[in-house]
C-alpha cells in the first residue's frame, strides 16, 4: 500500500518538476534579456538610426521596418484567413473539395519558415519581379500566418451559437446578411485575439524575410512598398553573427532583443488577457 503511494509521489514530483523547469526556462530567458538589455533602452535608442557603421546609435529604422512588414502581413493574412474560415464553417458541405482544402491548410501550416523564404524569393522577388521589398516580405509573412488565422477564425466562428444563425435565417434574412450582421460581429473578438498570436509570429520571424525584404542597413527610411527595409529580428541576427564588431555591439544586440521580445510577447500577452476576459464574460 505504501509502495503505491510512494510511486505516485515520485511521479507527481517529476510531473511538477517538468512544469517548473519550463516556467523557469521562460522566466530565465526573459529575466536575462531584461537585465542585460534595459540599460541600453532610451528614447534615442528607439527613435534614432544607427551610426558609426552600426556600432552606435539606435534601431529606429528596424522598428519601422518591422512595423511595415507586420502590418503588411496582417493586411494579407487577415482577410484571406477570415474569408477562408467563413467558407469552411458557413458554406462548405462535407466533401472531397473541403477535405483537400483542409489538408492544404494543414500542410501549409507545417511548411518550415525558411522554405517560405525560398518561396518568397523564387516567386515574389524573382518571378513577379518585386525585388527584395516590403511587398515581397509582407506577402511571404502573410501567407506564413494564414493557417494560424484560419484556425483561429474557424474556432471563433464555430463558437457562435447555431441558434443565432437559425433565428436570423428564420426571419427571412439571407445567408450572407446573417453571416455579416450576426455571425461575424459575434466572432470578431475571438478571431482577432486568436489572430494576434499569428501576428506576433509575423513580427518575430527572421528566415522568411532574409531573402525577401530585409536589408543589413538602409540609409533612408523606405518610401514605397518596393523598398527594402531593416527589421528587428534580422538586425539581431546580423549584429550577433556578422561583422567584426560582435563584442562591441553586444549592448545594442541586447537592447534590440529586448525591444523585439517586448513587442512580440507584449502582443501575445494582450491577446491572452483579452481572451481570458472574454471567456469569463461570455453570455451564451
Amino acid at each position: 500500500m505504501r509502495w503505491r503511494y510512494l510511486k505516485q509521489s515520485v511521479f507527481f514530483g517529476l510531473v511538477s518538476a517538468s512544469a517548473l523547469i519550463i516556467t523557469l526556462v521562460l522566466g530565465g530567458i526573459i529575466f536575462y534579456i531584461i537585465t542585460n538589455g534595459y540599460s541600453v533602452i532610451s528614447l534615442d535608442f528607439i527613435t534614432k538610426p544607427p551610426t558609426d557603421s552600426m556600432t552606435k546609435g539606435g534601431i529606429m529604422p528596424a522598428i519601422i521596418g518591422t512595423i511595415y512588414l507586420t502590418v503588411g502581413a496582417i493586411a494579407i493574412g487577415l482577410p484571406f484567413g477570415i474569408a477562408s474560415a467563413i467558407y469552411l464553417t458557413e458554406y462548405a458541405r462535407q466533401g472531397k473539395i473541403v477535405r483537400i482544402i483542409k489538408i492544404g491548410i494543414n500542410c501549409l501550416a507545417g511548411v518550415p519558415s525558411v522554405v517560405f523564404g525560398l518561396f518568397g524569393l523564387g516567386f515574389f522577388v524573382i518571378f513577379l519581379k518585386f525585388g527584395s521589398s516590403i511587398l515581397a516580405g509582407s506577402l511571404t509573412l502573410g501567407f506564413l500566418i494564414l493557417p494560424t488565422i484560419i484556425g483561429a477564425s474557424e474556432e471563433a466562428l464555430k463558437s457562435v451559437p447555431q441558434t443565432f444563425r437559425e433565428a436570423s435565417l428564420s426571419l427571412g434574412v439571407s445567408k450572407w446578411q446573417t453571416i455579416y450582421r450576426i455571425v461575424l460581429p459575434n466572432a470578431l473578438p475571438g478571431i482577432l485575439t486568436g489572430s494576434i498570436l499569428g501576428i506576433g509570429r509575423a513580427a518575430g520571424e527572421t528566415a522568411p524575410i532574409m531573402f525577401t525584404a530585409a536589408a543589413f542597413f538602409t540609409a533612408k527610411l523606405p518610401s514605397s512598398i518596393f523598398d527594402e527595409v531593416m527589421a528587428l529580428p534580422y538586425h539581431i541576427y546580423v549584429l550577433a553573427t556578422a561583422g567584426t564588431n560582435i563584442e562591441a555591439t553586444r549592448p545594442i544586440q541586447f537592447g534590440t532583443v529586448l525591444v523585439l521580445v517586448g513587442v512580440v510577447l507584449g502582443i501575445d500577452l494582450i491577446a491572452i488577457i483579452i481572451r481570458g476576459y472574454m471567456r469569463r464574460k461570455k453570455r451564451w
Binding site: T163, F164, E166, A167
Partner: peptide
C-alpha cells in the same frame, strides 16, 4: 412569410 419561434429563447446579443 412563415415565421418561427424556437424551443429555447434565442434573442440576438
Amino acid at each position: 412569410k412563415v415565421g418561427m419561434v424556437f424551443q429555447k429563447p434565442n434573442p440576438f446579443p
